[in-house]
Design a binder for these strands. Structure first.
Lengths: 146, 146
DNA sequence: GTTAAACCTTACCATCATGGGAAGGTCAAG
DNA sequence: CTTGACCTTCCCATGATGGTAAGGTTTAAC
């Protein structure tokens, strides 16, 4: 049977090695909810559907989802992931472009880490001055109220 | 003139030392938008109003706003700030309760810092292996696609 | 005394990444 | 043919913050 360009039945798609959304989710580590979301916002191209409208995923799609997942785990924003995907799929990319994205993200992380470190340091100082007993006197509150 | 319990005109309120929301904002460092929001969600009690419905702030209110601001700057969530405010205003508090909140927040910061540090380390390693030139070969993308 | 600027009010909408749930269609197994 | 486990879309929620629009108030200037 030649199904080129036609929407298959679900059983046909499965027997041809396509995955439905829950299998794609399992295999990529991205929730079905987020898979649909990434399609909505255009991070992933729309995938094919069965006759009944079920999304079907081929290996390449699942590979993209894993790429997204890994990027997300490294803290990249949706936008940055879009850029990374574009570079990944562009055979004529310059690795300099990828590296620039990565370094910018590192700088971003550094900034956020430094902010939180500063908070941490202040809080630690205050907490270490607080007796932490039944009495109300508390340098932490005094600082907050200052 | 005795205005106890009545809603004053704005000019009256101002001459009695009350501040309107933009002055309260300036003096506390909290945007008018967020001042209203904190009132909406019950973090701050509803303040008095003029006859025309304008919010008016006394020193004590502004003091609370500064407390919120400082707490927010130290990374406390709205919820935690609510707890801190409760302790601050409770003369029979135990400093142990305040300290516990602070230590829990420090632990939270530590967790988030560690997560970001881990991302940073991975990215740094990958980036340092990337030549960053005009060629497409890139260990960063290879990792993301792995 | 009127008018214009600069306020104030409420009520929405948006962000970002994620999840929950409802209403309704589809499919596979008993 | 029914049941349960899927799938679909659509709407709502988070948390902290900002934007804007429509409409009322106050103040300062003419």
């Amino acid at each position: 049977m030649n199904n080129k360009g036609k929407n298959p039945a679900l059983s046909t798609a499965k027997s041809e090695g396509f995955a439905n959304i829950s299998v794609a989710s399992e295999r990529s580590g991205v929730s079905a909810k987020m898979i649909r979301h990434y399609e909505d916002i255009g991070l992933m191209a729309k995938v094919d559907r069965t006759m009944a409208g079920y999304r079907i995923y081929r290996e390449a799609d699942i590979h993209i989802l894993r790429f997204i997942r890994r990027s997300r785990d490294l803290g990249f924003s949706t936008n940055e992931i879009g850029n990374l995907l574009g570079l990944w799929q562009n055979r004529r990319r310059a690795s300099a472009d990828v590296k620039r994205l990565a370094l910018r993200h590192i700088a971003d992380l550094d900034k956020r880490i430094a902010e939180m470190q500063a908070m941490r340091t202040t809080l630690q100082t205050l907490a270490s001055c607080c007796r932490g007993d039944q009495r109300p006197d508390c340098p932490i509150l005094e600082d907050l109220a200052s």
